[in-house]
Amino acid sequence: MAPVHFLALLKNWLISSERPIDKNFAANRLRPPGAVEEAKFMALCIRCNRCLEVCPYGSIKREGFGIAIGTPYVYPEKKACYLCMACCRLCPTGALDNQLKVPEKVQMGKAKIDTKTCYSHLFLEHDVLPESRGGSIGALCNTCYYVCPLQDSAIMLKDNLFPVILDGCVGCGICVERCPTSPNRAISIIPTGMGRPDEAGFYFRKARRSYENSSSLQKTDDSKSLSGEKLLEQKFKIQNSDKAPKFEFPYEPPKNRGDWD
């Protein structure tokens, strides 16, 4: 066996084996703003809870169980981060970046809209919401757009109709806190690091596997293998307006949403 293969096998094994911190990753469970990447955060965070004490909104909660006990989390479904940046300044170890002062540079995560439950997307599709989601109500909700503190750089209304997440999303979670859908919010924050295979946890890998098996992968691959007339045609379809969303989350969440929480 060639050494390259052996390394690839080793990497695959490392990625697929559970590290203790992999369990830290879950949708709508974020580290406070300015947090360094998860493995380093777990090493540097000394559980002094100073961030928790200065948070004027009470957004930061203390983890009560498991290996991450005592470390800070933000649960945007209960209380989102309002990006006041008070906690970063006070962190005694650099687990939260002390130099970070600009809310736009925070990278807690990225919002992800579930188009199957989002009222605006459902309304566009059905004109009225389906029976299971409120019956005869017909509405463009777009609450997430109106509450976003970084409107138009983090989220935009595509064609003035439905919300789309852009690159500027910092993952503060205010949209999640205010989202009127229930029981599962139609918008959720995927924490930074969870989306990267080297640092991601079980849920990411599971999602990635289902994504690779899904048909959506073939669709994107088709567009790359086009040539000649068809490629030109495809390229003309691409909008060149500067409002086009640059960010799209690179995978689909697993079908069973219970696994995400």
Binding site: K40, M42, I46, R47, C48, L90, P92
Partner: peptide, 29 residues
């Protein structure tokens, strides 16, 4: 004054438990 006895901040002066610092050093490299 903010913090707990793992690490305190008194008017801008940071004070932390030396063991905590030692461990953060070893753990994060």
């Amino acid at each position: 004054i903010t913090g707990t006895y793992y690490a305190l901040n008194v008017g801008g002066l940071g004070v932390a438990d030396p063991v905590v610092i030692l461990q953060a050093m070893f753990a994060s490299g």
